[in-house]
Design a protein around this nucleic acid. Structure first.
Length: 177
DNA sequence: CGAAGGATTTTCT
DNA sequence: GAAAATCCTTCGT
């Protein structure tokens, strides 16, 4: 469970991104201003801006100097539903409040300026009393190239949970012709 | 329910 | 210039 700004989610879906050898990772081609947090010590929040409009959050994992993180893809809002709903005006159902990385970011009030924030301060992570009984594993969502193939099945989710985002395979995008 | 297009910024070629 | 760890609206089945 992750506590954010006046709201908390039970995480139901995550993806792993690991180091230099992972072609799907932002850190694959080295350190940039955006992904610098991933190279730091674990237990911090890596927040990035993508697609011109969305914020996504990772929890940095692995030792300092080795980039790695877990992308928070989706979850169920279990506390502060009103605050989350106020921020997610377009959401029609409770399950939609944090169903997707960008939505989860908005629901918890995560901002770009929260990048690098240490867990335990602004945000607090509570591990479940016992491991989830069952989860499934498969290729990552929205990742193009080799990183999205079956060779890197690093997306994990709780099967049957309504807050898990629907799997979309990489949709190549074309610009206005 | 699925497919398709637009919005919009950081980063790399 | 093009693609990207996405979301929302609209149209078709």
């Amino acid at each position: 469970m992750l506590h954010g700004r006046d709201a908390a989610v039970r995480l139901t879906e995550v993806e792993a991104y690991r180091g230099f050898a992972d072609p799907g990772s932002h850190a694959y081609r080295g350190k940039t201003r955006r992904n610098a947090t991933m190279f730091g010590p674990p237990g911090h929040l890596y927040v990035y801006f993508t697609y011109g409009m969305h914020v996504c959050a990772n929890i940095v994992c692995g030792p300092e100097g080795e980039p790695g993180g877990v992308l928070l893809r989706a979850g169920e809002i279990v506390e502060g539903r009103e605050a989350a709903r106020a921020r997610r005006v377009t959401s029609r159902s409770d399950a939609d409040l944090a169903r997707g990385p960008g939505r989860l970011g908005v629901a918890l009030g995560i901002q770009l300026s929260d990048d690098g924030s240490r867990l335990g301060e602004l945000y607090r992570l509570e591990l479940a009393p016992h491991p989830v009984p069952r989860f499934e594993q498969g290729p990552r969502t929205g990742v193009s190239g080799p990183g999205g193939s079956d060779e890197y099945p690093w997306r994990f989710w709780i099967p049957g949970d309504p807050t898990v985002s629907p799997y979309k395979r990489n949709t190549p995008k074309r610009r206005t012709p």
